[in-house]
């Protein structure tokens, strides 16, 4: 029997809120949540709470912490959402945007766009996600056609092709970065999963992509559900399989591109979060996609907060934390739930 489950949204939404507050509060200087709330309330026109804190707190929250937190939340949500979609599309528990090379392809697209001209204005910020999207789509097409054996895409060839294409894309990315010497610091932090740019501009840049990507993703659950019975049965059940596959590839690549554009290539979030949600709350993709989006944001926010406080005032690239914390956690989940994961 399906176990009586914890209500998914009652568990996940407060967790997300907690992670958001922690993310804004923590850093080189700790800012109490009460103060954060007042600073945020002051943003609303007409509200004017007298400041009992130093003015620098207001600047830190508004101009540094808040945009960073939002960018991290968007990145985590996009990675986990697209991870769930790829896993469903390939009917394969290991198909996450990182392992199948799509994230690296998107990263190459983003860096390529940056290399042409480092963005100084908002228009430049709009082009970077577009470059990442093209990189992601080309990569997924290449990996899929390389991995295909006859009518099927076996796990082994999919991962092998993904790792190979991903490594190739990463190498090209590194080459592009090394050629533009000024950008080397930003480049390295990008590669390890750190935002190379701060402030509100990147968020404005990805906003249109985010709205489209998340709407498409949220609507893909039913198609993914039907596809779990295999393409042949899906067609016999009345799904236009080819259209559905194109839809999901475009959607998942778009959301991967959103994640990678300003946060670099971050592993494990897209792999782990959908698994955890699936193990606890089941395989219905309509719900799984939404839960992965919420859980992805929460997980990456927590990892990023850890990355900033562990060696404060220095901050670690978040990719290191997701791998350090994510890999053992993933193995633990896998061992514990072996019998419950039905693919």
């Amino acid at each position: 029997m399906l176990k009586a489950k914890l209500p998914p949204y009652i568990v996940n939404l407060p967790l997300l809120l907690l992670a958001l507050i922690l993310s804004v509060a923590a850093g080189a200087v700790f800012i109490p949540p009460g103060t954060i709330t007042k600073i945020l309330l002051n943003l609303i026109p007409g509200v004017d709470i007298a400041a009992t804190w130093t003015n620098s707190f207001t600047v830190i929250v508004r101009e540094i912490r808040l945009p960073h937190t939002i960018l991290i939340a968007i990145t985590g949500a996009s990675l986990a959402g697209s991870g769930a979609a790829y896993q469903g599309l390939f009917r394969n528990p290991l198909a996450d945007p990182y392992l199948i090379g799509v994230a690296s392809g998107a990263g190459l697209g983003a860096i390529f766009t940056m290399a042409i001209s480092w963005p100084e204005d908002l228009l430049g910020f709009y082009f970077i996600p577009a470059g990442a999207f093209v990189g992601a789509i080309l990569t997924v097409i290449l990996v899929y056609s390389l991995a295909r054996v006859g009518r099927t895409v076996p796990l082994t060839t999919l991962i092998l092709a993904g790792v190979a294409v991903g490594a190739f894309a990463s190498a090209l990315t590194s080459y592009l970065m090394l050629r533009s010497e000024d950008e080397i610091y930003r480049a390295i932090s990008f590669l390890l999963g750190g935002s190379p740019v701060a402030g509100w501009k990147p968020i404005l840049g990805i906003l249109p992509y985010l709205i489209v990507g998340m709407s498409l993703l949220a609507a893909s659950g039913h198609m993914l559900n039907v596809l779990q019975f295999g393409e042949e049965q899906a067609k016999q059940l009345g799904l236009a399989v080819n259209k559905a596959k194109v839809y999901i590839v475009i959607t998942a690549s778009l959301t991967t591109a959103i994640a990678v554009s300003f946060s670099g290539v971050i592993g494990f979030i897209g792999l782990i979060v959908p698994h955890v949600m699936r193990i606890i709350w089941g395989a219905d993709y309509k719900r799984l996609i939404r839960l992965s989006i919420i859980g992805g944001a929460t997980a990456l926010l927590l990892a990023d907060t850890l990355a900033r406080v562990l060696l404060a005032p220095q901050s670690l690239p978040v990719g290191i934390v997701t791998a350090l914390a994510g890999a053992p956690f993933f193995l633990w989940i896998l061992r514990r739930a072996k019998s419950e994961v039905f693919w």
């Binding site: 399906l2 609507a219 659950g221 039913h222 198609m223 559900n225 039907v226 779990q228 019975f229 295999g230 049965q233 059940l237 009345g238 799904l239 699936r278 089941g282 395989a283 219905d284 309509k286 994961v341 039905f342 693919w343």
Partner: peptide, 24 residues
């Protein structure tokens, strides 16, 4: 065995795919 992680009711409901919209 395919779609083993779905419940029986979810599985049977997918027989209605041709009558439902693309959101299911």
């Amino acid at each position: 065995q395919l779609g083993g992680a779905f419940s029986v009711e979810q599985t049977v409901l997918m027989g209605r795919t041709a009558y439902m919209n693309w959101l299911g």
